[in-house]
Structure formats: C-alpha cells, structure tokens
Amino acid sequence: MDVLYFAWVRERIGHPKDKIDTQAATVRELVEELRGREERYAAAFADLEALRVAVDQELTDFDAPLASAREVAFFPPMTGG
C-alpha cells in the first residue's frame, strides 16, 4: 500500500511517500503502526484532530476500513481557493 504525506505532515516525516505492507484493518490502526516506527512519525501523528485522511483519493475518517485500499494519504486541513 502507498502511504502519502502532504504539506507539514510530509515535512515532519521527511519524505512524501512510504510503501507499506500492513495488516491494519482501519486507518486508525495504520496510524498506530506508523507512530511506532520512529519519533518523527510519532510527532507527525501526535494530534489526529489536526489531520485529515483520504483512502484511494476519497476523503474519509480515521475509522475507515483499509480492506482493499491501495493508497492512503495524510495531510492537514486543506487551504485551496
């Protein structure tokens, strides 16, 4: 599965993308797994209120299932326009 990071999440983690083999059933479980990787991941995922998530390019929430997901992206609230 591709895990993508944008904006300050990308900066805090230090790169834009990880390829991950995971058994995580939900986004929240994936976040737990990522937090355990390294301090910079723990820092990026410290406050989930400050983050948004998309699964296969659709905005969703942290309880969303990852069953057949190919791409998960984490980013701060969007500031378009």
């Binding site: 944008f6 904006a7 998309a54 701060p76 609230p77 969007m78």
Partner: peptide, 26 residues
C-alpha cells in the same frame, strides 16, 4: 464552488517570507 474548493480540494498553501516558510492554517 469557492466554499468547497477552499476546504475540500486538496491544496495546501505555504507563505514564504524573509522569516521563512509558514503553512497557511485552515
């Protein structure tokens, strides 16, 4: 369109000044 583009289209703005870069908060 504008209301939704602001907070539902995946763009992130960063302001870069003499003091450095700062992500624009929603």
């Amino acid at each position: 369109l504008m209301d939704y583009l602001k907070s539902r289209a995946p763009f992130w703005k960063k302001e870069i000044t003499r003091e450095g870069g700062q992500w624009v908060a929603a």
